[in-house]
Design a protein around this nucleic acid. Sequence first.
DNA 1: CGAACGCTTGACAGAATTCAAGTCTGGTGG
DNA 2: CCACCAGACTTGAATTCTGTCAAGCGTTCG
Lengths: 225, 225
Amino acid sequence: MSKCEQCIIKQFNSLKSLTKDELVRISACKTSKKIKKGEVIFEEGEMLNGVYCVRDGICKLTKLSENGKDQIVKMVVKGQLLGQRSIISDEASNLQAIALNDMEVCFIPKSEIIADLQKNPKFSFDVLKDMASDLREADDVIVNMAQKSVRQRLAESLIYIHENFGVNPDGTLSILLSREDYASIVGTATESAIRVLSQFKKDGLISTIGKFIKIEDLNGLKRIE
Amino acid sequence: MSKCEQCIIKQFNSLKSLTKDELVRISACKTSKKIKKGEVIFEEGEMLNGVYCVRDGICKLTKLSENGKDQIVKMVVKGQLLGQRSIISDEASNLQAIALNDMEVCFIPKSEIIADLQKNPKFSFDVLKDMASDLREADDVIVNMAQKSVRQRLAESLIYIHENFGVNPDGTLSILLSREDYASIVGTATESAIRVLSQFKKDGLISTIGKFIKIEDLNGLKRIE
DNA sequence: CGAACGCTTGACAGAATTCAAGTCTGGTGG
DNA sequence: CCACCAGACTTGAATTCTGTCAAGCGTTCG
């Protein structure tokens, strides 16, 4: 099993603020795990007893709304942590995590994280910054959901994925999502999402290569109102 | 000027985790401020150089969306802190704060808060918990905005206000909001909010006493789908 | 008193959901 | 190998929801 203190992934999250000693200690009790596409990492309402550090792959965090539909609240990619919130508030998770492709994660027990939060103010402050940034993003999502049309929201989601999760060599979005996933991101019916995507394609804003989506006119998408 | 170490308001927020010495030091450099209804506490994009501790009154945190409409993202009441997020991430505020009634707040300079965050892990952990709780609430709002109808959202907002901000002796909601504010909470046109409220009234779910709203059938509101 | 503002209602257009087909695809079992 | 099936995808049509524009009412405040 590889060692945390040598892992480059930690450069991208708050674990970078831990001392070498702390990393060695965590490394000793962490467990590595492979998760297959579609597999559930944790359920809504489940008590987490640790956090996950995503070494590879992508997952979606969803919440079941009262009308029975899943809403994708956030997507977590390589380099990010998963589950800090539930650990910190010491409550059951309010979200479900599902792998969108094959993943590799490290599981770090709750006790270790809590101990470091209490002892290492730099680490604690870094986590604080992460959460502040999450909150700011959440505010943006709230405003978009509340004020914009399905068409606008879908356009912005495509742009977000393009800019944050990157593209394949042929220019297609590196993340492969089903139509249902897209609908679940913008909070609409699957048919509505499909219709809007068809329209984007007809307008030359996007194209499809196999199941993948390629953005052809980024500025055109940005101009949608 | 009153002293922080004797202030009971601090019992309701993370400041309760500060030591007596820290409170004395903060007390020495804080400034007390009265803010009138409708007054802006800080603007979106403004650099905050401290946090506000709300001693009395209520304010709304809004964000201007690209289509020019304000969205109410959160309401902050007596006992809560205002502006931690911007201080922590050291960025301009992403929200505007406006008093909904006459307020009394204490302003604590950024340097003091940051110093205490670095030195007092208990305080820092408490702030972390606050933000974790804010994030969870934000997730709920996202799902509601994305998946529910204007009618449902308005019903839930009324319930939220009723349960979290309390009622006057005659049973009316203690917070007085304009129709435009209600529209801005659920993210809809003012006319739409008015129409839904009228319908609620016609259905006997709510009544109005002067400008105040009184919930007549809480379970009825909860049953709306 | 008049102007300004918030509140209310009507009418209509456009957006979005729902239900109901039908197509395409990859995988499975014969 | 091929037929077939399940699931994802696509499109159409009817219905419902929501935003917008327009008009009128009531209150407050100068």
